[in-house]
Design a protein around this nucleic acid. Structure first.
Lengths: 349, 349
DNA sequence: GTTGACTGACAAACCGTTTTCCCATCTGGC
DNA sequence: GCCAGATGGGAAAACGGTTTGTCAGTCAAC
């Protein structure tokens, strides 16, 4: 059995109350008394039971993280940031995977409530607004990498319009004038927003992105591979391709290379997500929009801590993207990635 | 403020003791009394505070998961399985990323101890034995996807020897006789074990895998790409390549294709990890060893629950792999992946 | 009518902390 | 010698549950 504060008090020859105060630096007592208490605690390997503390303090220093997206590519990328932000307040993360199942989600919400978490983070896909996790929960909620379909909730996500703009601008810098966009299904809000951003970038330069140059398909490598070939036939004058993610971009790059098209000299390619393992290994390495998910996680964490302190900020906050510039659309750089926009925060940096 | 059991008791017109028993199905009482209590709890939205319960029960129904590997490719793959196993006992997961930093690790162990977790899972890289997380911890520990450098600890990991054997056997089935192995640094125990497994498979068929056919390099796509070209020059008779992971395999497949070598007709290729996004999109799609990490997570979870119940099983347990058969080494199948070995458990299946 | 077994519910103690309130004992000034 | 104000420490009451022990009432059997 673990040592209790009673054990500490007994060994130190003081009362339980004094032991508590001694360990927490509260109250007034002779320095040697405090020292004796601390020393006894050390000998016994005493660690105050936080569950018991939370009974009196009213805070558990625990927050839940409910993912609706499983442990795919995006939630884990945020986790480190969330954890780093929370550790500033010595909060711990309780993990739940609702797996797109409303029953499971309800069950987890109940479990988190029973554990009296101080707050909750809900992560999802950025693609579309998601239903709120419940109303009148006894703790603040922050939606991360998704938006709640309720203005009174707090959502923090990625600025897809900005990402699209950043990607298109990089192609423009490269000198492209005939830009095509290969992306995912138009039913996704994120897809539409990225198109809008790209369009804005082109308009700023007196160009345009007609619907005929926007191709929708699945978010996969095969789709990019085949779409690139098709594009060459229907729009042979295209000199820049903006892709909906790095998988599409990889398919495009491979497809073009196999057809003897030089990237970026004949056609420049820009990806999205900056999934390093894929983007950096493509031949040539892909210039790609980085959503700064580690930083998003950090901001979500600090925002939740503020909300726990009573300072809530309802509404949707969209964080800007960066772009990692590599050889597939270098625009005046060498081979190493060069950052445009905020340099991304990374762990331990 | 959340409703307490005192509120429930007052509304139901019974004592606190009776309310507790009524809600937990214990004690004996008139059915209508129990019904009245349950009804009152429902009206008030009462959820028993688990932190308070844990004070008397001695169990927190919380287990920690400490990763030494960040949230890379392997730990998230196990998370779902761990969670599914733990949910059978309504346990929750407390997440900690030690990030290869001993100080941070010590800090997290302290925090988990203070929270009185029932048990701990430590995940790492399978590549080499790892130091124990500490001795005489007040809860059982299971090492997952890594092995502790102490026989008295419980470790559950992947059988790399079996994986290597499975991969080589698939190449043999394909009819390959001159097999080469492109893999990671020989300092990794996992690398050495896979070599041993491959060697065993060849020996069983009267063939051998000489050291000259084993090439060590980084675990990356570029390494595979360049090693494939080099191999063609030095060992032009090679007809099968066993790769240390899917990234290497992808580099190999792309490299061979660009040189006009047909995969699998001229040279068959087998990958490792079955990282679907990469393996299934390669041209041709990669046959690849699957480590069944979801299942590993499940088994780790149930093993920890047993240990919490007092039933510990010290030692190292190595779980067999499967192999997803695709076009890069089809050996009598079509284009869809075919499973050899145990069909992998997947969530919700 | 007494005994004994059983039923249904309650009071109180307990889990491990924190916090509030109060009580000795000094100290110094008159 | 007496009082005010520090100083150092303890007793007890929370916090929100669970569990133990007890007790009044009911009922059947002798």
């Amino acid at each position: 059995m673990a040592a209790t504060i009673r054990d500490v008090a007994r060994v130190a020859g003081v009362s339980v109350a004094t032991a508590s105060k001694g360990l927490n630096g509260k109250g007034r007592m002779r320095p040697e008394t405090r020292e004796r208490i601390v020393q006894s605690a050390r000998e016994l390997g005493f660690r105050a039971n936080r569950n018991a503390s939370s009974l009196t303090s009213g805070r558990t220093f625990t927050v839940g993280l409910l993912t609706r997206d499983g442990y795919g590519r995006f939630t884990p990328a945020m986790l480190g940031g969330v954890e780093d932000a929370l550790s500033a307040d010595t909060c711990s993360l309780l993990l739940c995977d609702a797996r797109r199942d409303a029953v499971r989600e309800r069950h987890y919400i109940d479990a988190l409530t029973a554990r009296r978490v101080d707050g909750l983070i809900v992560t999802g896909r950025a693609t579309d607004p998601a239903p709120r996790v419940g109303r009148d929960l006894p703790f603040p909620v922050v939606y991360a990498y998704t938006t709640a379909d309720d203005e009174r909730a707090t959502s923090i996500t990625v600025d897809d319009e900005h990402g699209g703009w950043l990607a298109a601008r990089q192609l423009l810098r490269q000198g492209c004038t005939q830009i095509a966009h290969l992306t995912g299904p138009p039913s996704y809000a994120a897809v539409r927003q990225r198109i809008a951003g790209a369009r804005r970038a082109l308009t700023e330069k007196g160009l345009e992105l007609p619907d005929s140059h926007v191709v929708h398909g699945p978010f996969g490598e095969e789709a990019g591979y085949h779409a690139a070939r098709a594009l060459l036939e229907t729009r042979p004058d295209v000199d820049g391709i903006l892709c909906g993610n790095d998988q599409i971009a990889r398919g495009v790059a491979d497809g073009l290379t196999l057809l003897g098209v030089r990237v970026p000299d004949d056609i420049a390619v820009v990806g999205y997500d900056n999934w390093t393992l894929l983007a950096a290994s493509t031949r040539p390495p892909l210039t790609s929009v980085d959503m700064n998910l580690y930083r998003l996680g950090r901001i979500v964490g600090t925002t939740l801590l503020q909300a726990i302190d009573g300072d809530r900020e309802p509404g949707i906050r969209r964080l800007p993207c960066s772009i990692a510039v590599r050889a597939s659309c270098p625009a005046g750089t060498g081979d190493d990635p060069v950052w445009v926009g905020d340099a991304p925060l990374v762990p331990d940096a």
